[in-house]
Computed example of a mutant assay.
Amino acid sequence: MPSGKQPEPGPFARAFSAHVRSVMDAGGVTTSALAVAAGLSRNYLGKRLRDEVPFTLNDVEAISKALEIELPEL
């Protein structure tokens, strides 16, 4: 992807980040802990959880593995 401004998250991306935040809250998982488990920087993950930038499919896969939730369930 070319460097520069990222597209703004759309409705599906915002719904996904809201769901990840609710799963994190329910499991007591912090942004820092999820970032480490998913192999992402805290800043990178935080921007996506705050809907500043959309998640990539690679992010979704890493988060799924880190939270130990199968992709269709996540």
Score class of each variant (00 low, 15 high):
Met1Asn: 13
Pro2Asn: 06
Pro2Tyr: 00
Ser3His: 04
Ser3Gln: 08
Ser3Met: 05
Gly4Asp: 15
Gly4Arg: 08
Gln6Val: 04
Glu8Phe: 04
Glu8Asp: 10
Pro9Phe: 12
Phe12Asp: 12
Phe12Ser: 10
Phe12Met: 09
Ala15Asp: 13
Ala15Tyr: 05
Phe16Ser: 02
Phe16Cys: 05
Ala18His: 06
His19Ser: 09
His19Ile: 05
Val20His: 02
Val20Arg: 02
Ser22Leu: 02
Ser22Glu: 14
Val23Thr: 11
Val23Lys: 06
Val23Ile: 11
Asp25Pro: 03
Asp25Tyr: 03
Asp25Arg: 15
Ala26Glu: 15
Ala26Leu: 13
Ala26Val: 04
Gly27Thr: 07
Gly28Asp: 11
Val29Asn: 06
Thr31Gln: 14
Ser32Asn: 12
Ser32Cys: 10
Ser32Asp: 14
Ser32His: 11
Leu34Gly: 07
Val36Ala: 15
Ala37Pro: 09
Ala37Trp: 02
Ala38Val: 10
Ala38Lys: 03
Ala38Asp: 06
Gly39Leu: 02
Gly39Arg: 07
Leu40Glu: 10
Ser41Tyr: 02
Ser41Phe: 00
Arg42Tyr: 04
Arg42Gln: 13
Leu45Ala: 07
Gly46Cys: 09
Lys47Met: 14
Lys47Asn: 15
Arg48Leu: 11
Leu49Pro: 05
Leu49Met: 07
Leu49Asp: 05
Arg50Val: 00
Val53Thr: 14
Pro54Asn: 00
Phe55Ile: 01
Asn58Trp: 05
Asn58Leu: 13
Asn58Pro: 07
Asn58Ile: 05
Asp59Gln: 05
Val60Thr: 03
Val60Glu: 01
Glu61Val: 09
Ile63Tyr: 11
Ile63Met: 07
Lys65Asp: 10
Ala66Ser: 04
Ala66Gly: 11
Ala66Thr: 00
Leu67Thr: 07
Leu67Ser: 14
Leu71Ile: 14
Glu73Ser: 11
Glu73Tyr: 03
Leu74Met: 10
